[in-house]
């Protein structure tokens, strides 16, 4: 079911490579949440400009600092001179442009460097689209991520903490850090206690089937808690799929080298799965073809 959303916000939804952009209208001004992937930035500026219809974009707020959420920040700043507001915990990673902490290097992703103007912390309130939104800490997929919740309209902007079907890859354990799974569970439990009528996720359509989404998310986190190899394998598939979305297509015979060029895939395999390189590539190929994340056309692998 598609939820009815307030007229003071507009979701700009494209494919998975660019996170949703949520534009809030505030009289003659406007605020945007998240900015998509860097290779789409020109179109993002155009979409926002069209929807602004003469209003001024004064603020850009991020849910977290992954490449598919911040890739348009620099271009939007250049086009509209908006204030860029990021979650407080990301101050150092962005200020120092730490490509490891921002997950750019490990995942083979690009972004365009920007500098934020201010920070928002969990517990803060921010008015967007004439509504009050609470910034909620939603650690897990990104330990510093924030979600934005409007109690009056019972709407949650969840970023990658909760989607209609699952949530963003839980990275911490896969990088040898602690408590990503625990925090993800606690985040889901916190969110599931909120009265929510509509969720605007970081990816995919806005949805109103809240209970079903939580059921799927809790089922998935339980699987990962019981079997870390399952998380590792899921993460490798997602990482390769995402990289292929950017790459679009590659000759089949070069696919193995492409997978090996992604440090994340190689490291996670070495740390958790221990498959031979050939076995890893064969399994990635097979499973991505099976779910149409890859298609084979004339000897080329094409992103699904």
């Amino acid at each position: 079911m598609t939820p009815i959303l307030p007229d003071s916000l507009l979701v700009l939804e494209r494919g998975w490579l660019s996170a949703n952009n949520i534009l809030f209208f505030e009289g003659e001004q406007a605020t945007l949440v998240d900015s998509g992937y860097v290779t789409h930035a020109g179109q993002t500026v155009a979409l926002v400009g069209h929807a602004l219809a003469g209003r001024q974009l004064t603020r850009l707020v991020n849910t977290h600092s992954h490449s598919d959420h911040i890739g348009g920040n620099a271009a939007l700043k250049a086009a509209y001179d908006c204030e860029i507001i990021v979650p407080a915990g990301l101050h150092a990673a962005i200020a120092d442009w730490d490509e490891d902490a921002l997950l750019l290097s490990p995942l083979g992703q690009q972004s365009a460097r920007f500098q934020h103007d201010s920070l928002i912390s969990a517990g803060a309130e921010i008015a967007m689209g004439g509504l009050n939104w609470q910034a909620l800490a939603v650690p897990g997929h990104d330990m510093e991520a924030l979600a934005y919740y409007c109690p009056e309209k019972r709407i949650l902007i969840s970023g990658d903490a909760l989607w209609e079907n699952g949530f963003g890859v839980i990275f911490p354990e896969l990088f040898g850090e602690a408590d990503g799974l625990l925090h993800t569970r606690q985040t889901l439990e916190m969110l599931s206690r909120l009265p929510i009528d509509a969720i605007i996720p970081g990816h995919g359509r806005p949805f109103a089937s809240i209970d079903e989404a939580f059921e799927r998310a809790f089922r998935r986190i339980a699987q990962f808690e019981n079997n870390i190899e399952q998380l590792a394998w899921h993460a490798i598939k997602v990482g390769v799929s995402f990289a292929m979305l950017e790459r679009r297509s590659i000759p089949r015979e070069r696919f193995a080298d492409f997978v090996f060029s992604l440090p994340f895939a190689v490291d996670v395999n070495a740390r958790f799965l221990g498959m031979t390189p050939d076995a890893l590539v064969a399994k990635v190929e097979r499973e991505l073809l099976l779910v149409n994340a890859l298609r084979l056309e004339d000897g080329m692998f094409v992103a699904g």
């Binding site: 598609t2 494209r14 660019s18 789409h40 020109g42 179109q43 679009r248």
Partner: peptide, 16 residues
């Protein structure tokens, strides 16, 4: 609102 039809977006997202 009924909106089940899938978006034609293929993640290229560049204007001509």
């Amino acid at each position: 609102m009924s909106a089940m039809l899938q978006s034609p977006c293929i993640n290229i997202c560049k204007m001509d």
